[in-house]
């Protein structure tokens, strides 16, 4: 089994390295100029050389994404709890959340820029896209409780508060975590897309702006370097949310169950 796991990590790593090596070789053998396609080694070197600029942008993008995700998590969960406890509220406001969700952020961003500073607008866009999956999933989870368990709570005359705390919330946890995983990815996408639309420069410039800016200056290696940082951020967010989900669910939920070989 250990060998199996080693192979499972080794194989993708090898494939990844092989792809990089092939890329490097193709660029060198064909003498492709860096403005067309930079070699991985050059991208690495650019990452180091431009680190002072790029790291600043990385911090900007990551903090916007995380702030938006935290706000979306808190807001989405609270709203879902309100909806679950008071159904008329759900009928009344759910359509609004759907409208906000189905309208593409890229279309909302210019409008937001009229009212907000670019930094704020990016934050709001990122929040908007991350909010809905968390709200929708948590709402679904809070209402998909085993009816027999609900009957049991009713038979023992449990207050609706205890029913929420001891039954609905734990039952909703896997759904919420699913929403969080989707929301985490979307928050980053929202932040990037909104920043491209906003085109904010200077101090508060994030990674998306670096990409746009490098494009104008034909600094393709730096464009790739910024892209690498975005990908790494996305992977990091995914790993964090997946780990959190595993930590909370692996004792009892089927999604985290490892099948016996």
């Amino acid at each position: 089994m250990n060998r199996d796991r080693a192979i499972r990590t080794l194989l993708p790593a090898l494939a990844f390295l092989a792809a990089l090596a092939a890329w490097e070789a193709i660029v060198r053998i064909n003498h492709i100029p860096p403005v067309i396609l930079p070699a991985p080694s050059l991208i690495g070197a650019t990452l180091v050389k431009d680190w002072p600029t790029l790291s600043g942008s990385l911090v900007v993008t990551l903090s916007i994404t995380l702030e938006a995700l935290v706000a979306a998590t808190v807001g989405g969960t609270l709203l879902a709890l309100l909806f679950a406890q008071w159904r008329p509220l759900e009928y009344t406001f759910f359509p609004f959340t759907v409208i906000l969700q189905v309208t593409p952020v890229i279309a909302i961003a210019p409008l937001l820029l009229v009212y907000l500073t670019p930094g704020e607008a990016v934050l709001v866009c990122s929040f908007l896209v991350a909010f809905f999956p968390i709200l929708a999933n948590t709402s679904l989870g809070l209402t998909s409780v085993d009816h027999n368990l609900l009957d049991l709570f009713q038979m023992y005359r449990a207050s609706s508060w205890r029913q929420l705390l001891w039954l609905r919330i734990p039952a909703a946890l896997p759904y919420f975590l699913g929403g969080l995983r989707i929301g985490g990815g979307l928050a980053l996408i929202g932040a990037i897309v909104a920043e491209i639309a906003a085109g904010s420069a200077g101090e508060g410039a994030g990674l998306a702006f670096r990409i746009v800016e490098s494009g104008y200056r034909l600094n393709i290696p730096r464009m790739f370097a910024a892209l690498v940082l975005i990908s790494v951020s996305g992977v990091a967010i995914f790993v964090c949310t997946t780990t959190l989900s595993w930590l909370l669910l692996h004792r009892w939920h089927d999604s985290a169950r490892r099948r016996e070989p």
């Binding site: 085993d146 027999n148 368990l149 005359r157 001891w166 734990p170």
Partner: peptide, 24 residues
């Protein structure tokens, strides 16, 4: 009440499941 299915809370261990009526 005993249902046709066990109807246990999957997130709680056996002790906590049996404790539930007393806890309520």
């Amino acid at each position: 009440f005993v249902f046709q299915e066990p109807t246990l809370m999957p997130w709680a261990n056996v002790f906590d499941n049996v404790w539930l009526p007393l806890r309520l």
